[in-house]
Protein backbone atom coordinates (compact mmCIF):
# COMPACT_ATOMS: atom_id res chain seq x y z
CA UNK A 1 0.00 0.00 0.00
CA UNK A 2 0.97 3.53 -0.57
CA UNK A 3 1.75 5.09 2.77
CA UNK A 4 2.16 8.62 1.49
CA UNK A 5 -1.06 10.60 2.18
CA UNK A 6 -3.06 11.57 -0.89
CA UNK A 7 -2.98 15.18 0.12
CA UNK A 8 -0.05 16.86 1.75
CA UNK A 9 -1.80 19.58 3.74
CA UNK A 10 1.48 21.10 4.82
CA UNK A 11 2.32 21.80 1.20
CA UNK A 12 -1.08 23.32 0.68
CA UNK A 13 -0.77 25.68 3.60
CA UNK A 14 2.62 26.84 2.36
CA UNK A 15 1.27 27.56 -1.09
CA UNK A 16 -2.01 29.31 -0.34
CA UNK A 17 -1.11 32.32 -2.46
CA UNK A 18 -0.42 30.05 -5.45
CA UNK A 19 -3.82 28.47 -4.90
CA UNK A 20 -5.50 31.85 -4.74
CA UNK A 21 -3.72 32.98 -7.89
CA UNK A 22 -4.75 29.92 -9.86
CA UNK A 23 -8.36 30.24 -8.69
CA UNK A 24 -8.31 33.84 -9.83
CA UNK A 25 -6.92 32.81 -13.23
CA UNK A 26 -9.52 30.09 -13.49
CA UNK A 27 -12.34 32.51 -12.82
CA UNK A 28 -10.93 34.82 -15.45
CA UNK A 29 -10.63 31.92 -17.87
CA UNK A 30 -14.32 31.28 -17.25
CA UNK A 31 -15.70 34.79 -17.11
CA UNK A 32 -14.14 36.12 -20.31
CA UNK A 33 -15.42 33.37 -22.64
CA UNK A 34 -18.88 33.37 -21.06
CA UNK A 35 -19.15 37.14 -21.33
CA UNK A 36 -18.03 37.21 -24.95
CA UNK A 37 -20.14 34.18 -25.73
CA UNK A 38 -23.19 35.80 -24.18
CA UNK A 39 -22.83 38.93 -26.28
CA UNK A 40 -22.43 36.93 -29.48
CA UNK A 41 -25.30 34.63 -28.52
CA UNK A 42 -27.55 37.57 -27.72
CA UNK A 43 -26.99 39.01 -31.16
CA UNK A 44 -27.45 35.64 -32.87
CA UNK A 45 -30.56 34.82 -30.84
CA UNK A 46 -32.17 38.20 -31.35
CA UNK A 47 -31.49 37.86 -35.06
CA UNK A 48 -32.85 34.30 -35.13
CA UNK A 49 -36.08 35.20 -33.35
CA UNK A 50 -36.72 37.93 -35.85
CA UNK A 51 -35.64 35.94 -38.90
CA UNK A 52 -36.81 32.48 -38.12
CA UNK A 53 -35.25 30.73 -41.08
CA UNK A 54 -31.86 31.43 -39.52
CA UNK A 55 -32.60 29.36 -36.43
CA UNK A 56 -31.73 26.11 -38.20
CA UNK A 57 -28.36 27.18 -39.63
CA UNK A 58 -27.32 28.99 -36.43
CA UNK A 59 -28.19 25.98 -34.29
CA UNK A 60 -26.42 23.63 -36.69
CA UNK A 61 -23.28 25.77 -36.73
CA UNK A 62 -23.06 26.29 -32.98
CA UNK A 63 -23.85 22.59 -32.57
CA UNK A 64 -20.92 21.72 -34.80
CA UNK A 65 -18.60 23.88 -32.72
CA UNK A 66 -19.93 22.18 -29.62
CA UNK A 67 -19.26 18.73 -31.04
CA UNK A 68 -15.51 19.16 -31.39
CA UNK A 69 -13.90 17.67 -28.26
CA UNK A 70 -12.19 20.30 -26.14
CA UNK A 71 -8.64 19.02 -26.35
CA UNK A 72 -8.93 18.80 -30.13
CA UNK A 73 -10.32 22.32 -30.33
CA UNK A 74 -7.43 23.75 -28.35
CA UNK A 75 -4.96 21.76 -30.42
CA UNK A 76 -6.48 22.90 -33.70
CA UNK A 77 -5.88 26.52 -32.79
CA UNK A 78 -2.20 26.16 -32.00
CA UNK A 79 -1.05 26.63 -35.62
CA UNK A 80 -3.20 29.77 -35.87
CA UNK A 81 -2.94 31.53 -32.53
CA UNK A 82 0.17 29.82 -31.17
CA UNK A 83 0.20 29.44 -27.46
CA UNK A 84 -1.42 32.78 -26.73
CA UNK A 85 -4.35 33.24 -24.39
CA UNK A 86 -6.62 33.26 -27.46
CA UNK A 87 -5.96 29.55 -27.96
CA UNK A 88 -7.83 28.91 -24.74
CA UNK A 89 -10.37 31.72 -24.97
CA UNK A 90 -11.68 31.02 -28.47
CA UNK A 91 -12.79 27.41 -28.01
CA UNK A 92 -14.12 28.11 -24.54
CA UNK A 93 -16.20 30.88 -26.07
CA UNK A 94 -17.51 28.81 -28.94
CA UNK A 95 -18.57 26.08 -26.52
CA UNK A 96 -20.91 28.48 -24.76
CA UNK A 97 -22.64 29.52 -27.97
CA UNK A 98 -24.86 26.49 -28.48
CA UNK A 99 -26.12 26.57 -24.91
CA UNK A 100 -26.62 30.31 -24.81
CA UNK A 101 -28.19 30.77 -28.23
CA UNK A 102 -30.64 27.97 -27.58
CA UNK A 103 -31.63 29.29 -24.19
CA UNK A 104 -31.96 32.89 -25.27
CA UNK A 105 -34.14 31.91 -28.21
CA UNK A 106 -36.21 29.75 -25.89
CA UNK A 107 -36.40 32.70 -23.52
CA UNK A 108 -37.80 34.98 -26.18
CA UNK A 109 -40.18 32.30 -27.30
CA UNK A 110 -41.39 31.76 -23.76
CA UNK A 111 -42.98 35.20 -23.75
CA UNK A 112 -46.68 34.46 -24.12
CA UNK A 113 -48.28 35.74 -27.32
CA UNK A 114 -51.16 37.33 -25.43
CA UNK A 115 -48.71 39.37 -23.36
CA UNK A 116 -47.07 40.68 -26.52
CA UNK A 117 -50.43 41.44 -28.08
CA UNK A 118 -51.60 43.28 -24.98
CA UNK A 119 -48.40 45.31 -24.92
CA UNK A 120 -48.72 46.25 -28.56
CA UNK A 121 -52.41 47.02 -28.20
CA UNK A 122 -51.77 49.34 -25.29
CA UNK A 123 -49.28 51.39 -27.24
CA UNK A 124 -45.79 50.08 -26.44
CA UNK A 125 -43.31 51.00 -29.12
CA UNK A 126 -41.34 47.98 -30.33
CA UNK A 127 -38.28 49.15 -28.41
CA UNK A 128 -40.25 49.56 -25.19
CA UNK A 129 -41.66 46.11 -25.75
CA UNK A 130 -38.21 44.58 -26.14
CA UNK A 131 -36.75 46.24 -23.06
CA UNK A 132 -39.70 46.20 -20.71
CA UNK A 133 -41.48 43.00 -21.66
CA UNK A 134 -39.49 40.58 -23.79
CA UNK A 135 -36.10 40.85 -22.11
CA UNK A 136 -37.35 40.67 -18.51
CA UNK A 137 -39.53 37.68 -19.34
CA UNK A 138 -36.68 35.94 -21.17
CA UNK A 139 -34.40 36.37 -18.15
CA UNK A 140 -35.16 33.09 -16.36
CA UNK A 141 -34.15 31.03 -19.38
CA UNK A 142 -31.19 33.28 -20.10
CA UNK A 143 -29.92 32.80 -16.56
CA UNK A 144 -30.47 29.07 -16.85
CA UNK A 145 -28.34 29.16 -20.01
CA UNK A 146 -25.63 31.26 -18.35
CA UNK A 147 -25.56 28.86 -15.44
CA UNK A 148 -25.01 25.93 -17.75
CA UNK A 149 -22.41 27.84 -19.76
CA UNK A 150 -20.44 28.87 -16.67
CA UNK A 151 -20.42 25.40 -15.17
CA UNK A 152 -19.37 23.82 -18.45
CA UNK A 153 -16.64 26.38 -19.00
CA UNK A 154 -15.22 25.88 -15.50
CA UNK A 155 -14.78 22.21 -16.34
CA UNK A 156 -13.38 22.73 -19.83
CA UNK A 157 -10.96 25.43 -18.70
CA UNK A 158 -8.98 22.80 -16.79
CA UNK A 159 -8.32 20.98 -20.07
CA UNK A 160 -6.58 24.04 -21.52
CA UNK A 161 -3.63 23.41 -19.21
CA UNK A 162 -2.84 20.21 -21.11
CA UNK A 163 -1.84 22.30 -24.12
CA UNK A 164 0.53 24.48 -22.14
CA UNK A 165 1.10 26.09 -18.78
CA UNK A 166 0.70 29.68 -19.91
CA UNK A 167 -3.07 29.74 -19.44
CA UNK A 168 -2.92 29.03 -15.73
CA UNK A 169 -6.05 28.07 -13.95
CA UNK A 170 -6.66 25.04 -11.82
CA UNK A 171 -5.81 22.70 -14.69
CA UNK A 172 -2.23 23.72 -14.22
CA UNK A 173 -2.15 22.11 -10.76
CA UNK A 174 -3.49 18.91 -12.29
CA UNK A 175 -0.98 18.82 -15.10
CA UNK A 176 1.94 19.65 -12.84
CA UNK A 177 0.76 17.03 -10.37
CA UNK A 178 0.66 14.41 -13.10
CA UNK A 179 4.08 15.36 -14.42
CA UNK A 180 5.70 15.26 -10.99
CA UNK A 181 3.57 12.41 -9.60
CA UNK A 182 2.44 14.65 -6.77
CA UNK A 183 -1.15 13.68 -5.85
CA UNK A 184 -1.67 16.73 -3.66
CA UNK A 185 -1.57 19.01 -6.68
CA UNK A 186 -3.81 16.70 -8.70
CA UNK A 187 -6.45 16.63 -6.00
CA UNK A 188 -6.16 20.29 -5.29
CA UNK A 189 -6.73 21.20 -8.95
CA UNK A 190 -9.48 18.69 -9.52
CA UNK A 191 -11.24 19.25 -6.21
CA UNK A 192 -11.17 23.01 -6.47
CA UNK A 193 -12.49 23.04 -10.04
CA UNK A 194 -15.30 20.74 -8.96
CA UNK A 195 -16.06 22.96 -5.98
CA UNK A 196 -15.97 26.03 -8.18
CA UNK A 197 -18.49 24.46 -10.54
CA UNK A 198 -20.90 23.60 -7.75
CA UNK A 199 -20.59 27.00 -6.11
CA UNK A 200 -21.27 28.72 -9.43
CA UNK A 201 -24.27 26.46 -10.04
CA UNK A 202 -25.67 27.29 -6.63
CA UNK A 203 -25.09 31.02 -7.01
CA UNK A 204 -26.88 31.10 -10.33
CA UNK A 205 -29.91 29.34 -8.89
CA UNK A 206 -30.03 31.99 -6.18
CA UNK A 207 -29.53 34.77 -8.68
CA UNK A 208 -32.39 33.52 -10.80
CA UNK A 209 -34.76 33.45 -7.84
CA UNK A 210 -33.61 36.88 -6.79
CA UNK A 211 -34.29 38.62 -10.06
CA UNK A 212 -37.50 36.84 -11.00
CA UNK A 213 -39.71 37.33 -7.95
CA UNK A 214 -42.83 36.83 -10.06
CA UNK A 215 -42.12 33.20 -10.79
CA UNK A 216 -41.44 32.37 -7.15
CA UNK A 217 -44.85 33.37 -5.95
CA UNK A 218 -46.89 31.32 -8.33
CA UNK A 219 -50.23 30.39 -6.91
CA UNK A 220 -50.44 26.72 -7.72
CA UNK A 221 -47.21 26.24 -9.64
CA UNK A 222 -45.62 22.90 -10.11
Amino acid sequence: MNDKPFIDWGWVSRHLDDVAELIGQHLQLTAIPVAIGFLIALVLATWATRHRRWIGPITAFTGLLYTVPSLAAFALLIPITGLSLLTAIIPLTTYTLLILVRNIVAGFESVPADVLEAAEGMGYTSRQRLWRIELPLAVPLMIAGLRLAVVTTIGLATVAAIIGDQFGGLGQFITEGLQTSFPTKIYLGAGLSLALAFVADFLFIRLERLITPWSRSRAGGR
Binding site: P112, A113, D114, V115, L116, E117, A118, A119, E120, G121, M122, G123, I133, P136, L137, T212, W214, S215
Partner: peptide, 16 residues
Protein backbone atom coordinates in the same frame (compact mmCIF):
# COMPACT_ATOMS: atom_id res chain seq x y z
CA UNK B 1 -53.42 52.92 -28.91
CA UNK B 2 -52.66 54.64 -25.63
CA UNK B 3 -56.00 56.37 -25.97
CA UNK B 4 -57.95 53.16 -26.53
CA UNK B 5 -58.53 50.55 -23.83
CA UNK B 6 -57.73 47.02 -24.98
CA UNK B 7 -58.91 43.84 -23.29
CA UNK B 8 -58.23 40.37 -24.73
CA UNK B 9 -59.42 36.92 -23.89
CA UNK B 10 -56.14 35.65 -22.49
CA UNK B 11 -55.85 38.95 -20.63
CA UNK B 12 -52.13 39.27 -21.34
CA UNK B 13 -51.22 40.58 -17.93
CA UNK B 14 -47.47 41.08 -17.65
CA UNK B 15 -46.36 38.19 -15.46
CA UNK B 16 -43.26 39.99 -14.20
Amino acid sequence: RRGIGYVIQQVGLFPH
